[in-house]
Simulated scan of single mutants.
Amino acid sequence: MTPPVKSPGAVALGPARDLLWSAVGAGDEHRAATVVLDALETTADAETVLLDLIAPVQAKVGAEWAANRLTVAQEHTATAIHERVIAVLAHRPECRGGTPDGPRVTVACVDGEWHALPARLLAEVLRLRGWRVDFLGSHVPTPHLIAHLHQTGPRAVALSSSIPTHLPTAHTAVTACQAAGVPVIAGGAAFGPDGRYARALGADGWAPDARSAAAVLARGLDRPGPPGVDRGLDDLPHLADQEYTIVAATTHQLVKQTLADLEDRFEPLRGYTERQRRHTAEDLAHIVEYLATSLYVADEDLFTRFILWTADILTARGVPARGLDPALDLLALQLKDFPRACHTLARAREALGHRTPPPKTPGPGKPA
């Protein structure tokens, strides 16, 4: 991935990042706002504060949750504080951007995507650069997005998604926007480390961060052709084999059977509490969803990366990651008539066999 572009003032924000991290970790919204506003006075550059202060601290929030050093509640609290602090920043007189006659752009998260902070950061950066921004927030159903486009006629749509399992929905949104005559730039972790899934789904542009997205939009995206022309039908010809469709449609059955069979293969499961079994079923459901998404975009690496990430998450939480291998084998037995699925599962099992577990870390609130 291309590293995010930083402004000259970013280096000077190191102490402010430490202070902001301390504030959001303590759930102290007022102290967090003070840190951000003080940084604004120091740098006199709202974009730098947004992208080189708030954004990296939010990224650390996610990393600390993954390492089991923050609870879900602490992660949600930190994110909520950042959202409110951004709102405070946006209403400062020196931070009000956009003009009534500026180019119009719609920024939205795809249907099902609740992680709206990256899209919000982009929306604020575009406002600062003179765009007239319609920020629709998280979880925007595609029909409502298209209705908005018909009503407002923006120059482009910026679609955000952080979770790869939303890629099929993102594909629907991309092709629907293009059919309405509006080009699409995609962004967010869901679209791959180098934007490969944005290209696979036929997006008109991709950017790894907000500054790069603003630059792409400033250069302009070509309109996708006359309204009503759907360019997405031939983007993914491999879907003709129906493997994605069948795996997605039978997720519940696959999870139920795998959980039942896993008791014979993975002895610790027999002693699990009802709560632990429920979490195991949820993990299996995520595995099947990522398998289906991998089949949708025809990229085995997507699934392998998720399995290795899941192994690290389980290890950080003191759950035996060795249960993943028999679970993948049991899924392969159920999907023995689906060659792409079986090959994807085999690749992931091979990667698990060569995995080096991360060092154990203390849980939330525990001393190192």
Rank of each mutant, 00 (worst) to 15 (best):
V184G: 04
H238F: 03
A186Y: 04
L221I: 09
G228W: 05
Q178R: 10
P237Q: 01
G202D: 11
L201K: 08
S212C: 13
G187V: 02
R199M: 07
A240G: 07
L254T: 07
L236A: 01
G220R: 06
A248S: 14
L259R: 13
A248Q: 10
D241R: 00
V182A: 04
G202H: 11
A215Q: 15
D241P: 08
R231A: 05
Q242D: 13
A179Q: 11
T245F: 06
V255H: 10
K256D: 15
P226I: 02
T245S: 14
T258S: 08
G228A: 04
R219H: 15
D264V: 05
V247H: 07
D209N: 13
P193D: 11
A179P: 12
I246Q: 07
C177I: 05
G205E: 09
L254Y: 12
D241G: 01
A210K: 10
R219C: 14
A215M: 11
L221P: 10
Y197G: 04
P226E: 04
F191C: 06
L269D: 01
G232E: 03
L217H: 10
A190F: 06
Q178E: 04
A176K: 02
A200S: 14
R199H: 15
A214L: 08
D222L: 11
A213H: 02
P208K: 01
P183E: 01
Y197I: 01
P208W: 02
R199S: 13
T251Y: 01
F266Q: 01
R219N: 14
Q253G: 01
A189F: 12
G195D: 03
R211W: 12
A176T: 00
